[in-house]
Every structure is written in structure tokens, then in C-alpha cells.
């Protein structure tokens, strides 16, 4: 075991890790940040997506030691300073973009990264960029709407309801 230090949600933190400790285990077990979930073991589902130095990564497919010293952002760090929902979070609630909530943290983190790169994506771009996040509840309809709405676009009109 080695002490691994990084900055998570703006705070410098340390926890014990082995070589094989995945970032997601470091967050969940080492730091008690259980908002980041594990939904598969083949790096497909995206429930574990967090940001490392501003980039969305699958925290189940990164060793904690490999990102020692990095800036990590998780779902627990996404609300506004006053505790209210951030723009992406609010759009997901407004558009019913979640049901069971298990894939939601990964969806929110992927969306935030997507919009940072591409502030006004098309529907097709949104669907393509969400390729690595699996949701079993929503059929994606309201997730795509939420992402479009979070980008300031008229999601209702684009969904042609």
C-alpha cells in the first residue's frame, strides 16, 4: 500500500492504494465518494466516468497511481457553490433524464465534458458522444433532450414532440 495524493473536487486528498487500485475504488472506498458507480468490468458502460485534468475518463480503467497529483472532478463536485444543481444536473431533472439514477453520474460527467468541447452540439453529435454511457431505463430520449437543453437549445422542438 502506498499513499496516493490527488486533488478531488478542489480538495487535496490522500488515501492508501495498491498498484492495482483503480481510480474508481480509490474514490469509492478510499475517499467514500460513492456517487461514481461501477456498472461493468469491460470499460463499456460509463457509470464510472469522472474528469481527470478536465477530461472525461472511465475511472474503472485508470489506476489511481497513474493519476496521482491530478485534478479529479466527480459527480459530488458538480453542484453550484450554494448547493443548487449545476446547469447539466438541472437539465437532467427538468427533462426527466434519469430514472433509477445509477448511470446518471456518468451521464452528467460525460455531458459536462461534451459541452465544454462543443457548446452547441447537434442531436447526432450528442448521441455519438454518449456512445460510451449505457442507460437501461430511459431509452435515451430524455437524456438527449437534457443534454440539448443544457446547451441552451430548444430540446422540445428538436425532439419533435
Amino acid at each position: 500500500m502506498t499513499e496516493v495524493t490527488m486533488t478531488v473536487n478542489g480538495k487535496s486528498v490522500s488515501a492508501q492504494a495498491e498498484g492495482r487500485t483503480l481510480l474508481v475504488n480509490y474514490l469509492r472506498e478510499g475517499l467514500g465518494l460513492t456517487g461514481t458507480h461501477v456498472g461493468c468490468d469491460t470499460s463499456q458502460c460509463g457509470a464510472c466516468v469522472v474528469h481527470v485534468d478536465g477530461k472525461a475518463v472511465k475511472s474503472c480503467t485508470v489506476f489511481a497511481m497513474d493519476v496521482a497529483g491530478a485534478q479529479v472532478l466527480t459527480i459530488e463536485g458538480m453542484a453550484n457553490a450554494d448547493g443548487s444543481l449545476g446547469v447539466v444536473q438541472q437539465a437532467f431533472q427538468d427533462h426527466h433524464g434519469l430514472q433509477c439514477g445509477f448511470c446518471t453520474p456518468g451521464m452528467v460527467m460525460t455531458t459536462a465534458a461534451l459541452l465544454a468541447d462543443n457548446p452547441r452540439p447537434t442531436e447526432a453529435e450528442v448521441r455519438h458522444e454518449l456512445e460510451g454511457n449505457i442507460c437501461r431505463c430511459t431509452g435515451y430520449h430524455n437524456i438527449v433532450k437534457a443534454v440539448l437543453a443544457a446547451s441552451g437549445q430548444d430540446a422540445g422542438a428538436m425532439a419533435a414532440e
Binding site: G46, K55, A56, T110, E131, G132
Partner: peptide, 9 residues
């Protein structure tokens, strides 16, 4: 390749 998170790593 893969998805955005995979492409980042």
C-alpha cells in the same frame, strides 16, 4: 475509436 472517455486515455 471507442467513446470520448476511451479516446481521452
Amino acid at each position: 475509436i471507442g467513446d470520448p472517455a476511451v479516446r481521452n486515455r
